[in-house]
Simulated assay, not measured.
Amino acid sequence: MTDNHDIPPVIRDLLVDAEKQLAVFANALGKPFDYSLDALGRLEHVLGEAWPKPPKNPEALDILVELFGAYFGESLRRIYGGRWVTGDGLPFLQGPHHPECKLFPFPAIYQKMAHQKTTESWVVAYCIASRPNWVPPPPEKKSFFGRLFRK
């Protein structure tokens, strides 16, 4: 793992264990988990193949979400920039140029493991929102139904 002082200790500790778990899959696949975009594709594949259904034990699911969520988030941070924000609530990534750009990697991995939802849309969204010229969309003032029946 790259020595990086920008990683909060709680995330750094999770990454040590995540790397150990992913080393087993890297050996089987013959390709590394090196925090690259290609490795995120391998992570998506491994999570779907190794856990086509969520673990029956909720504690096991929580541990896997923590490990792979830390790896997922740290990969995005290394690829697109940003910083980890920890404290109250779930840790999240804040984009490199805009405080409004936030990504919560642990729920993204939970959705993958518990419901087989792809992580690709999260990667694309963080990529786009991490650009210097990105502008957050204005908040909608109308409800969902109000937007549907707009004249």
Rank of each mutant, 00 (worst) to 15 (best):
P58Q: 06
V24H: 06
L61T: 13
Q116D: 14
D62K: 14
A70V: 03
L43M: 10
P107T: 06
N133R: 14
D17V: 04
K56S: 12
P136N: 11
G87R: 06
R83G: 11
C101T: 14
E44L: 06
N57F: 00
Y80R: 01
V24R: 08
D34L: 12
L43K: 05
S75M: 10
F149Q: 04
K102R: 15
A50L: 12
E49A: 14
Y35C: 06
I128V: 15
F72G: 07
E66P: 01
E120S: 13
P91G: 02
V10E: 15
Y80A: 04
G48Q: 02
K117V: 15
P138Q: 11
A50D: 11
G41K: 13
P139E: 14
P137R: 12
Y35T: 03
Y35F: 15
H115V: 07
Y126C: 05
P52Q: 00
Q111W: 13
A108F: 02
E140L: 12
S36P: 07
D6R: 08
L103N: 03
Y71M: 05
A23D: 10
K151H: 12
R131S: 14
C101M: 09
P58W: 05
K142P: 04
L37D: 13
M113K: 00
R147T: 01
G81A: 03
W84K: 10
L43N: 06
Y71I: 04
V124E: 15
Q21K: 09
V16Q: 09
I11F: 05
A26H: 09
V124H: 14
P132H: 06
R150I: 12
T119P: 06
P52T: 00
P132Q: 01
G87K: 04
L15P: 00
Y80E: 05
F68Q: 10
D34F: 11
G89Y: 11
A125Q: 14
A70I: 03
Y110L: 07
E120Q: 13
R77I: 01
P96T: 03
A114W: 05
A125C: 10
K53M: 09
K31Y: 04
R147N: 10
D62Y: 11
I79P: 04
F68G: 07
G73I: 03
P138V: 08
D3L: 07
G41I: 09
L40S: 07
Y126S: 03
A26T: 08
E100M: 11
D88T: 12
W84M: 10
W134T: 08
D6Y: 05
V135N: 13
V124Y: 13
K112A: 05
G73Y: 02
D38G: 11
C127M: 15
K141Y: 01
E59R: 14
S143F: 01
